[in-house]
Design a protein around this nucleic acid. Structure first.
Length: 827
RNA sequence: GGGCAUGUGGUGGAAUGGUAGACACGCUAGUCUUAGGAACUAGUGCUAACGCGUGGGAGUUCGAGUCUCUUCAUGCCCACCA
């Protein structure tokens, strides 16, 4: 064995051997139980960043740990390879998005291999390849047949910079999620997936996911945004029309003083009197011009104009005016709001500005308010509400809605904030939506046997203001599959999130050319046992994937209803306290780390300092420290190579004659136990690594006291080193393999079993008895573990320290915690 | 405005209600070296000391970093959603 540690040399060598031998291939059939470990697949942007390194290292260690513990582990990798950056790069460099993407995939694959990740590359998928997107299109058609994909004209989010529409989930603070450009509203005919059909079950089934963090579940629940309320219908005085409103506060219905409709409300023109027409038109025109950001700003003073018409409150017979104001949203509820200024802060602000009256109908009996200065929105008792006076407001919600139901002017209503998923994109580099338009036959799905609808090659990427795909001469014009007449192809492609909503299913049967996946294989491997990825996907990808799984289950393609059993959302990688980004110039290039220190150091360091779920602060000194530690491990093994045998006898409790050897045996068993538990319990790799260091420190300490080694010493040393190599093998994958072979093994360290501990040996031989007085530590006494509670008590009371401190005081009580502590309570 | 996290040495962070600060980074001495940003050894929460210490304040308990209430700060997510 070489004296010095040369990671670059070792790593290249073993990566080649593993690949040749197929060390990490996953057989479909095995008598072992299955385990599916999955990292969120990357967009092939060009190079790996440290967030990737962290993500994939975490999953890799999990996969290796499970494999060593007797599981048949599926650990695949692929590419989320459709998307706008490829197209932008194509425009900029005059290249084809496909070429750009392929080059990036090739480079990043090389980097992943340098990291020593245990992927089964035979199952690799890339969403931009026809053998994959054929099945994305096929799945789209199944959803279409099931009525879950439909086309409609709607107000949609438009990003001018990207030249395409965006899903609701992709608009962040009124800006495009990708380019930060301000998003506008446009009326366009677009394809949607009916995720709202699954709103209730997507919400309910969050309870079936104990292996997900509450933060993610709460974010999804908030996004789905279920609320229970009522629809109430109000008759218009001047017209034969009704205005329905959705409210969660039917208990305040007697306090309505006006009613607001959104500027885009469908009946607004009908509801406007000729005298008010000009002002209303001007207000609506202005609302159209405003960006989402301006309109959604909470600080903005509320504005509105009266329509001139009135409604009747069926509960009171009162007549009140109709207004339009942009604080009413056309997409939510009915697009109209009943205004109760006394009990809603928004209505209050608006009423104040326009001098509209307010009427108090809910009172806190202890501390009544006249609501002159602020709306009262807390629970209370009804007043000025006819027969409901004196009723608690929660009870009144039901009673009042029931009255509306009985009177035929309302009903109970459950409302969700979730909107249908807009999947059309006016871009080239995506899976073409497989439909054609025929003047005679209308919308026609492309017959399944004609899939895939291939992306055309004859396109001009330099066009502005329209999708490059529309420049193809060969793509657009086609024949109708129904009548055979001339027809036009759909030129929209699918949102990349459609492609990534089912990739984890494809890994179970990546080469299948008859189906997206065989049912038996998908049912065997899924659900994913452990999914690892960034929190930024808490809503988008994770919600869409859950929807897809449920929809495909209902179509009959698979038999489970949640795709990811356990979810680990890893924290960000920071440098100098802020997120690594090119614009801040605080990025660290993984290639440089591989080159200077090797992949094992990178893997060790990225796991070492923070628990996986927390943010991780990159420090150059930390990398250096991990490199030094691996050198220390290497020296420990290489300097002892002659004293270590892989065939040492089994070392049981009491089998060693020397006390220091017995102590080391205990330390080893404690390390095995601690490390195993730390990995099993939420993957606390940071403490796992501190335990590697403790074990190494203990072996060095032991050895420093032994100038000469006899047979017993050599046996315990062999056991120590072999255990250390096994325990470190999921993290330092190359170093441990090299050492393992240098010590004479013919088998890969990655095919051995995880070490086991003996419970009797995994604890110290003696205990430190902690002696407290009134809960404060006053003394510590070395004691035999076998002592009874009474003996421990006597021992504590006999302590000089205790005698001194309790002198002249009364001992009220003594608490004895077996094997640990005595607390003496004195007065 | 609503929700969810998180507050522990100079720093990253450890601690089934039972020894707070494991393990590191950093720092201080020393050994070996032509040299060392290598390796090894010793030390390192604060305080001169009694003691004091887990953002602040209360509470439960024999005992609280941990549980409860309250308050402050930071971060993230959502947000005129009626």
């Amino acid at each position: 064995m070489k004296d010095a540690y040369f990671p670059q040399e070792i790593e290249k060598k073993w990566q080649k051997i593993w690949e040749e031998k197929g060390t990490f291939k996953t057989p479909d059939s095995s008598d072992k139980p299955k385990y599916y470990a999955l990292s969120m697949f990357p967009y092939p942007s060009g190079k790996l960043h440290m967030g990737h390194v962290r993500n994939y290292t975490i999953t890799d260690v999990i996969a290796r740990f499970k494999k060593m513990n007797g599981f048949n582990v599926l650990h695949p990798m692929g590419w989320d390879s459709f998307g706008l950056p490829a197209e932008n790069a194509a425009m900029k460099h005059g290249a084809n998005p496909e070429t750009w993407t392929d080059e990036n995939i090739a480079y990043m694959t090389k980097q992943l291999k340098m990291l020593g990740l245990s992927y089964d590359w035979d199952r690799e998928v890339a969403t931009c390849k026809p053998d994959y997107y054929k099945w994305t299109q096929w799945l789209f058609l199944q959803l279409y047949k099931k009525g879950l994909a439909y086309k409609k004209e709607a107000a949609v989010n438009w990003c001018e910079e990207c030249g395409t529409v965006l899903a609701n989930e992709q608009v962040i603070d009124g800006k495009c999620w990708r380019c930060d450009h301000i998003v506008e509203k446009k009326y366009l005919s677009q394809w949607f997936l009916k995720i709202t059909d699954y709103a209730e079950v997507l919400l309910e089934d969050l309870d079936k996911l104990p292996g997900w963090g509450d933060n993610v579940k709460t974010m999804q629940a908030n996004w789905i945004g279920k609320s229970q309320g009522a629809i109430l219908r109000f008759k218009v005085v001047e017209k034969d029309l009704e205005v329905p409103v959705y409210t969660t506060r039917p208990d305040t219905v007697h306090g309505i003083t006006y009613l607001v409709v959104a500027p885009e409300y469908k009946d607004i023109e009908e509801l406007t009197t000729p005298e008010n027409k000009e002002a209303v038109e001007a207000y609506r025109a202005n609302a159209r011009k405003m960006t989402e950001i301006e309109r959604l700003s909470t600080d903005r003073v509320k504005t509105g104009v009266p329509l001139g018409t009135h409604c009747i409150n069926p509960f009171t017979g009162e007549k009140f005016p109709l207004w339009t104001a942009d604080y009413a949203l056309v997409e939510y509820g009915t697009g109209a709001v009943m205004a109760v200024p006394a009990h809603d802060t928004r209505d209050f602000d608006f009423a104040k500005k326009y001098n509209l009256p307010l009427k108090v109908v809910i009172q806190d009996t202890q501390n009544p308010s006249d609501c002159k200065d602020a709306a009262y929105t807390e629970p209370g008792v009804l007043v000025s509400s006819n027969e409901f006076n004196g009723m608690g407001n929660e009870e009144a919600k039901k009673a009042i809605t029931q009255k509306a139901v009985d009177g035929g002017f309302g009903e109970f209503k459950t409302q969700y904030r979730l909107r249908d998923w807009l999947v059309s994109r006016q871009r080239y580099w995506g899976a073409p939506i497989p439909v054609v338009y025929c003047d005679k036959c209308g919308i026609q799905p492309v017959p399944e046997e004609q899939l895939p609808v291939l992306l055309p090659k004859d396109v001009d990427f330099s066009v502005v203001g329209k999708s490059p795909i529309t420049t193809s001469k060969t793509f657009v014009n086609t024949t109708c599959p129904c009548c055979g007449g001339p027809a036009r192809r759909e030129t929209d492609t699918m949102d990349t999130f459609v492609c990534s909503s089912w990739y984890y299913l494809r890994y179970s049967d990546a080469k299948n050319d008859k189906m997206p996946f065989a049912k038996d294989k998908v049912n065997k491997w899924l659900p994913v046992d452990q999914y690892v990825g960034g929190i930024e996907h808490a809503i988008l990808h994770l919600l869409y994937s859950r929807f897809f799984t449920k929809a495909l289950r209902d179509i009959g393609l698979l038999d489970f209803d949640e795709p990811f059993k356990n979810l680990l959302t890893q924290g960000m990688v920071l440098k100098d306290g802020s997120k690594m980004s090119k614009s801040k110039g605080n990025t660290v290039d993984p290639d440089e780390i591989f080159e200077n220190y090797g992949a094992d150091t990178a893997r060790l360091f990225i796991l070492s300092d923070s628990p996986p779920a927390r943010d991780f602060d990159w420090s150059d000194a930390g990398v250096e420290g991990c490199y030094k530690f691996l050198n220390r491990v290497w020296r420990l093994i290489s300097s002892n190579a002659d004293n270590i045998s892989l065939n040492y006898p089994e070392l049981k409790a009491g089998s060693l004659k020397k006390k220091d050897n017995d102590d080391l045996l205990r330390v080893i068993h404690m390390a095995i136990k601690g490390i195993t538990n730390d990995i099993s319990n939420d993957f606390q790799f940071n403490t796992v690594i501190s335990k590697y260091r403790e074990l190494v420190n203990a072996i060095y300490d032991w050895q420093n006291k032994k100038p000469e080694l006899d047979d017993e010493d050599k046996n315990i040393l062999s056991f120590a080193i072999v255990s250390l190599i096994k325990l470190m093998s999921p993290v330092a994958v190359h170093l441990t393999e090299e050492a393992w072979h240098d010590l004479g093994s013919e088998v890969s360290i990655h095919d051995v079993e995880w070490p086991k501990w003996d419970e009797n040996l995994a604890k110290a031989s003696s205990i430190t008895l902690v002696v407290q007085i009134n809960g404060k530590v006053k003394d510590k006494i070395e004691a035999d573990e076998a002592l009874s509670q009474d003996e421990l008590k006597a021992l504590a009371l006999n302590s000089e320290k205790v005698k001194e401190l309790t002198q002249g005081k009364t001992i009220v009580k003594t608490i004895v915690v077996p094997k640990k502590l005595v607390n003496i309570v004195v007065k």
